[in-house]
Write a protein that binds this DNA or RNA. Structure first.
Length: 385
RNA sequence: GCCCCGGUGGUAUAGCCCGGUCUAGUAUGGCGGCCUGUCGAGCCGCAGACCCGGGUUCAAAUCCCGGCCGGGGGGCCA
């Protein structure tokens, strides 16, 4: 079957186009049939618009065709735009179809995607994931994710970084810590990369500033929380001729650009779900590890031994204290990866390192790297490598 | 792996403690009908379910045992 090419997203059909003709395409979200007048809500990726079918106005062929339409049928519609003050939905615009093409009929859906009184269990939703993704909130999540990644790239390209892609099937651990997934690599065993870290460091020796949005990184840990995954998208950057303070500065730009872009593009849609974006301001607060422990001990009633990592509830207390995103800097050297550079102020127990914390979560970490070969070898020896 | 909780139409649930009144209730979705301005549309009608196996009992959705599946907590981990 042939049908005309889609000319507009539903969100682009605005009252200014009153009297114009458009071709829309999408899925039947809902039908309200009042007999001689019928309203079809058409959904595409960008939103929902109302099609109005009216006896005496709509052509007979369209009238009879729309009799048999059902929810989630895929259709293409040619029609005229009419500015309508009475309708609350779809920006006060309705479309009177002159032609309707049914691309594909839908069966009854196995789950509720309309967000009424029935909330489907996650497990059932995942079973019918392609249907579940029709829910507007899910489509929004994917579109925001895409914008976030675009904003990260934008900020980093502006800072002179280039994007690289490192191997994901590797022979051994690149960073230590988390367990690796083993995979059969022909006649031998290989592992899925947990981090692009060491590749990144090698790349700076020629390309200076690189980043990778790893698709994805793998950690073989049997954790079962909503903030730990076995497979996740990581953003890694590495810069030559720079230290941890320079990197925090870049990170601030990246974070602010992400919030700013998402706010500009999605503030209206997010408001429907009660989400309001606050764009953080530079510079982010920087507290030292020692200060953080002190604050937690005095105001949070949380005692942490020097040398231990700040636990999750500690980060939550500090987030409450500071509100905005903040850095914890100068972690104990032994707490960080072997390539992290000590000493700070000639104290080898303290490193040039930072964590970025937002909303009680550690969302990024970084450090100056050791650039003297002998020190690197020494650091590896200390860890028993 | 450990502790706790649960599995009833497509979906989400009530009923289970205290077995019979369950011919299993409700909402939503589906199907059919009515309505020329709906927007969580409304109204009328129809179809649709007790996870599997065993046991107790005159009688099991309901009680007991086993299995399978799912949820929550905590542990490890970023």
């Amino acid at each position: 079957m042939s049908f005309p090419r889609k000319t507009h997203w539903t969100k682009d059909v605005t009252p200014e186009l009153d009297g114009k003709e458009v071709v829309l395409a999408g899925w039947v979200w809902d039908i309200r049939d009042l007999g001689n007048i019928k309203f079809i809500l058409l959904r595409d990726r960008e939103g929902i618009i109302q099609l109005t079918i009216k006896k005496g106005v709509t052509p007979e062929s369209v009238l009879s065709l729309t009799q048999s339409l059902g929810r989630e049928d895929a259709i293409v519609v040619r029609g005229g735009i009419v500015k309508a003050s009475k309708i609350a939905r779809a920006g006060g615009v309705e479309v009177f179809p002159s032609e309707v093409y049914v691309v594909s009929k839908s069966k009854a859906l196995p789950i509720d995607i309309w967000g009424g009184s029935v909330e489907t269990d996650l497990d059932t939703r995942l079973k019918y994931r392609s249907v579940d993704l029709k829910r507007p909130i899910n489509s929004l999540i994917f579109r925001v994710e895409s914008e976030v990644v675009r904003a990260i790239r934008e900020a980093l390209y502006n800072r002179g970084f280039i994007e690289v892609f490192t191997p994901k099937i590797i022979v051994t651990s690149t960073e230590g810590g988390a367990e690796l997934f083993a995979v059969q690599y022909f006649e031998r065993v290989a592992y899925l990369a947990q981090s692009p870290q060491l590749y990144k460091e090698e790349l700076t020796a020629s390309l200076e500033r690189v980043f990778e949005i790893a698709p994805p990184a793998y950690r073989a840990e049997k954790h079962n929380t909503n903030y730990h995954l076995n497979e996740f998208i990581s953003v890694d950057i590495e810069e030559a001729f720079a230290n941890y303070v320079d990197v925090m500065d870049i990170l601030e730009d990246v974070i602010i650009n992400v919030y700013d872009r998402v706010n500009k593009v999605f503030s209206n849609e997010l408001a429907k779900y009660g989400v309001e974006i606050k764009v953080p301001k530079k510079p982010f607060r920087r507290v030292t590890y020692d200060e953080a422990l002190d604050i937690l001990g005095r105001r949070g009633g949380l005692k942490i031994n020097w040398g231990d990592d700040v636990p999750k509830n500690g980060l939550e207390i500090l987030s409450e204290e500071f509100g905005e995103p903040f850095f914890i800097i100068h972690f104990p050297t032994d707490l960080r990866a072997f390539y992290t550079k000590p000493p700070l102020d000639s104290d080898p127990k303290i490193s040039e390192s930072f964590d970025l914390v937002m909303g009680g979560l550690e969302i990024a970490s970084g450090s100056s790297r050791i650039h003297v070969k002998e020190q690197l070898i020494e650091a590896l020896r200390k860890r028993g490598a």
